[in-house]
Lab assay of single mutants.
Amino acid sequence: KQVQVGDEKYTFDTPEEARKFAEKVAKEKNLKVTEKNGNFHVE
């Protein structure tokens, strides 16, 4: 599963790991997490 933050992409083995990372980054940057096709976008 992938997490996209701006132009950066991070790959994780499980959706749970990806979601945790996305939520942590979103909180730090005051952004929101959206899920698209099983991948997460922080925007």
Results as ranks from 00 to 15, higher is better:
residue 1 K to P: 14
residue 1 K to L: 13
residue 1 K to T: 15
residue 1 K to E: 03
residue 2 Q to L: 13
residue 2 Q to V: 15
residue 2 Q to A: 10
residue 2 Q to F: 15
residue 3 V to P: 01
residue 3 V to E: 01
residue 3 V to T: 02
residue 3 V to N: 01
residue 3 V to A: 02
residue 3 V to M: 01
residue 4 Q to S: 11
residue 4 Q to Y: 15
residue 4 Q to L: 15
residue 4 Q to N: 10
residue 4 Q to C: 15
residue 4 Q to A: 06
residue 4 Q to D: 05
residue 4 Q to M: 15
residue 5 V to I: 13
residue 5 V to F: 10
residue 5 V to K: 02
residue 5 V to R: 02
residue 6 G to H: 06
residue 6 G to Y: 07
residue 6 G to F: 11
residue 7 D to Q: 13
residue 7 D to K: 12
residue 8 E to C: 15
residue 8 E to Y: 13
residue 8 E to G: 05
residue 8 E to T: 13
residue 8 E to W: 12
residue 9 K to T: 15
residue 9 K to W: 15
residue 9 K to H: 12
residue 9 K to Q: 11
residue 10 Y to M: 04
residue 10 Y to S: 01
residue 10 Y to I: 04
residue 11 T to L: 12
residue 12 F to T: 01
residue 12 F to M: 01
residue 12 F to E: 00
residue 12 F to R: 00
residue 12 F to I: 00
residue 12 F to V: 00
residue 12 F to G: 00
residue 13 D to A: 13
residue 13 D to R: 10
residue 14 T to D: 11
residue 14 T to K: 05
residue 14 T to L: 05
residue 14 T to R: 05
residue 14 T to Q: 05
residue 15 P to C: 13
residue 15 P to M: 14
residue 16 E to S: 08
residue 17 E to H: 04
residue 17 E to T: 04
residue 17 E to V: 03
residue 17 E to Y: 01
residue 18 A to P: 00
residue 19 R to Q: 06
residue 19 R to E: 03
residue 20 K to I: 12
residue 20 K to W: 10
residue 20 K to R: 13
residue 20 K to M: 12
residue 20 K to N: 10
residue 21 F to E: 00
residue 23 E to G: 04
residue 23 E to F: 13
residue 23 E to S: 06
residue 24 K to G: 07
residue 24 K to W: 12
residue 24 K to M: 11
residue 25 V to T: 07
residue 25 V to G: 00
residue 25 V to D: 01
residue 27 K to H: 10
residue 28 E to A: 10
residue 29 K to W: 13
residue 30 N to T: 05
residue 31 L to F: 09
residue 31 L to A: 11
residue 31 L to I: 05
residue 31 L to H: 06
residue 32 K to H: 11
residue 32 K to C: 13
residue 32 K to Q: 11
residue 32 K to L: 10
residue 32 K to S: 11
residue 33 V to R: 03
residue 33 V to Q: 02
residue 33 V to L: 09
residue 33 V to Y: 07
residue 34 T to M: 09
residue 34 T to S: 09
residue 34 T to Q: 07
residue 34 T to P: 03
residue 34 T to C: 10
residue 34 T to A: 06
residue 35 E to F: 14
residue 36 K to G: 04
residue 36 K to Q: 09
residue 37 N to K: 05
residue 37 N to W: 06
residue 37 N to D: 13
residue 37 N to S: 05
residue 38 G to L: 03
residue 38 G to F: 04
residue 38 G to I: 01
residue 38 G to Y: 03
residue 38 G to A: 02
residue 39 N to D: 08
residue 39 N to V: 15
residue 39 N to I: 15
residue 39 N to Q: 12
residue 39 N to E: 11
residue 39 N to K: 09
residue 40 F to C: 05
residue 40 F to P: 04
residue 40 F to Y: 11
residue 40 F to I: 08
residue 41 H to V: 15
residue 41 H to W: 14
residue 41 H to Y: 15
residue 42 V to H: 03
residue 42 V to D: 03
residue 43 E to P: 05
residue 43 E to Y: 14
